[in-house]
Design a binder for these strands. Structure first.
Lengths: 215, 215, 215, 215
DNA sequence: TATGAATGAGAATTCATTCAT
DNA sequence: TATGAATGAATTCTCATTCAT
């Protein structure tokens, strides 16, 4: 509704929408930086340049604000995934593209990783409406399943690959490297975020995943 | 009179050590459950069955307690890894064993995952003495490097595999599945912690990793 | 509609100002009674009849509250000094009046003495903006300097008297007697705060100071 | 008793005395630096290089330790004053010498000023045995009284000078300058502790006091 | 005499949240 | 819609003091 061009009387509402979006973005950054427990409502208000009271007006409390942030984050990544049009590509290209996309998305949206962490620290209890979450997320797995099936039928992919397992592996390889880069860089004494290192990681990931699915 | 430390001293020392260890274990559980920001010093004291003041007596503050917990966690996993004696096995078996070990260790020590998450949320700033951290952690990568080299020389492994990349992939595949299992289970509507699902995951991981390194 | 600040805004502002002033007065009394280290924020809130949180809302922390109290105290005494219009009096009368004023002010504001004590125990580190402090305080010394100069030109005062030295002597004679009256009363077995004793002290001070400046 | 050379069996006792003295000195410094409320028993133990428990063993609690420190401080200054042998000097010299001594003693023992401050902040409630305090302190006033009387009889001093008033004036002029030097230096923008400034202060003090007593 | 371990009561400060307008 | 003032309930941390040996 709010994406529609609004009539003059809607101006107030549009301000309201804008305020909500501003709060949401500020909250996302704060939660990403400090986790749910470490985030401060005061700081969110400050980041948003809006009065703290307004946060409560729109989002009731910190928990539900966090929930709203999470939902937005899922919506964003799934929307981006749908733009990939993986089914328009030959299977191997589609898998490679998914690997690349996942890597680049995580790289461009480090806050997504942290939010996911926080969500899981709290045992995903903020995913209240899992029915809706499922609807939002299953398309990707279904798409990947179809790609794998096509590849198998073409004779280029091995059979028996569970798309969910494969997706988790792709995500995990990207996620762990990026999410733990501070620890890993310190522990192994290498700058894992240098441009060349990043390139090598993506290349490694593609090799592993395609080395696995391709016969 | 004897050269042995006298019993009373000994006991006192042991009490101090025991208290510290008790606090550390309690803190580990609390931090794992709630993250650094959500952890409560009061609860740690309660869990430990010791006076809250004692925590400050031994660990100065919450931050340094967290640091001590992290260090202990690293020491534990690295010690367990060294018990694997990977170099006594044929290369392929060694890699498989590392995959299995990583999976089982994460499964048995879910707190390790959460601690790692928290550490990275705080950009690993608790890894103060990274020199020591490096010394603690590099042996594993060196061992894996030697395994890969042996396999290559034997003709069974592909060449050019970076052991750090491989290790991160192994860890990431296990980590993401387990760490995010709540979100994933909710999102994809499958119980990822069911015994059979766990078995399938390990099997998938081994397939992917060995499918990649074996020629 | 009018250019006057609207009533509601005004009231709100006044409430904030009033709250701050109330806190400041309560803090002044608490600090004066117990020193910085012995003062309790809880008690200040109680004295002020306001929520403790509000103290932090307005003054950030105990240290800065103390600083605000000190600044207010200086502002108060310097304002009172300016009301004396010493330059309108003949030199000897002006000096006598300054002695009397100092004595009476200290007597009426015992908290000023204790605050000064505390400030100096902490090496005046709360006088952050000493530029402003200087501007606030130098006029008095300048005035006294002019009085001394006039007296000298008239032939009634001795020359070469440093106004700062003289001021410190006046203040010191009053201050020590009042500030240490408990110790002195106990040590010398006389009630130094009896009305007659107070009168005698003022008379002694005037004698000493005028005996010194008058030729 | 403890100043006597001890027999071999007294060795333990002498250690005890030494410990007590060490604690006392450490406590004096701590109290002088931070006041009663700001002093920390832990820090006193640290300064003394002795176990905290020992402080309680010897001095029961912080209050009584403070009391012991104060008593020692009074004993010290009064002992020093008695070494002056003021009665051996001509009256004017005796007064000048008392002024100089007071100034130099305060200068050399800044902790004495702070302790006095603290004592008075607490309304001298640590002067429990005021009978003993009086005995300790009155000799000075009596001596000064005799000096003033002699001067008057000689015709060089004015009559009717209360020795207690005079003493308080001397002490006050020195005390205020030194005790508040931080505030004063900041407020008036002059370094009051520079060698020349110190000299000028003493000279001013002597001028004022002698200008007053001498006819 | 001397000490390291342990503690309960408090103290400063923080934080999410509500009030009043 | 928007905001500054206000608050109660924690929460981290501190401190004098005692225990046990």
């Amino acid at each position: 509704m709010s994406t529609e061009p609004s009539t003059p009387t809607d101006e107030r509402l549009r301000d309201a929408d804008r305020s909500q979006a501003t709060i949401l973005a500020a909250a996302r950054d704060e939660f990403a930086e400090h986790g749910l427990g470490g985030a401060r409502v005061d700081r969110i208000a400050e980041r948003a340049g809006l009065n703290k009271r307004l946060i409560y007006y729109y989002f009731a409390d910190k928990e539900r604000l966090f929930q709203a942030v999470l939902e937005q984050a899922y919506r964003d990544i799934r929307a981006a995934e749908q733009d990939l049009h993986l089914l328009d590509l030959p299977p191997a290209d589609a898998v490679r593209r998914l690997v690349e996309f996942t890597w680049n998305y995580y790289l461009a949206h480090p806050e997504f990783l942290t939010l996911l962490n926080s969500a899981n620290l709290h045992r995903a209890r903020h995913l209240t409406d899992s029915q809706r979450a499922r609807e939002l997320n299953t398309p990707l797995i279904e798409t990947l399943g179809e790609i794998l099936e096509r590849g198998r039928r073409e004779g280029s992919f091995r059979g028996g690959v569970d798309p969910l397992q494969l997706y988790v592996s792709i995500a995990g390889m990207a996620y762990f490297y990026l999410s733990n880069n501070h620890t890993l860089s310190a522990i192994f004494g290498r700058d894992l975020m240098a441009a060349k290192a990043l390139q090598q990681r993506l290349s490694h990931m593609s090799d592993v995943i395609l080395g696995y699915v391709l016969i």
